[in-house]
Amino acid sequence: MLEGKLEQASLFKKVVEAVRELVQDCNFDCTENGLALQAMDTSHVSLVSLLLTADGFSEYRCDRNLALGINLVSLTKILRCGNNEDILTLEAGDSADSLVVRFENTQQDRMSEYALKLMDIDQEHLGIPETEYAASITMPSTEFQRICRDMQSISESITIDCTKGGVKFTCEGDIGSGSVTLKPNSSADKPELCTKIDLSEPVSLTLSTKYLLNFCKATGLSQQVTLKLADENPILVEYPLSAGHLRFYLAPKLDE
């Protein structure tokens, strides 16, 4: 039996909004540690890995591991029936064929309850290898979104070059080219606006603009985003949550 209560429905709504274009059907794996989701997009180019830890819920109970097969388009329809500020409760029995979604307003004088039919999804979990990343860049998530947005109209690919001196995003297309360079900076009073680079060696990756921009749907979940890069390896784009994380992996483009 799963019972999870979130004080604000907005967290769950935003998380589902952020992944629903990449993934249509997926299992929410419920354990005593929390809710997790791991799924690839249909073209097997990117992978979403979500973790909402139990301590992020005001109430959480899961006495037996459950895999809830959910169609995210359907879940979105139900989540839109609740307001962002509502208290959200997710409930499913051990052999339930539906997930109960309850909303309660902050005045506690309006309760609504919806049931989402569950699906049987045969999903393969990929083993994500431990990677020693050459560079880790933490920057404002809005800045990353802006770069991806600006470059989408110029090129299908963005190359990220990271050195000690800074990180450079470059794009090259039919109409011309562009680049944005960010240098590490710090501001004690506004740490969310800092750009931080941890580098063991210079690294360069070429990535699909479309997918990177898709990851930016998570911008509203976190003021900062971390990009982790290793040569010829998938990039890890991580949005930290107050209790858990939303991670995206994207395979690089390689010169043939």
Binding site: S46, L47, E124, L126, G127, P129, N233, A251, L254, E256
Partner: peptide, 14 residues
């Protein structure tokens, strides 16, 4: 143009 790789090339199937 560089070619898009798939993730299964990097991440192991169970």
């Amino acid at each position: 143009q560089p070619s898009q790789q798939t993730l299964t090339r990097f991440f192991a199937r169970p």
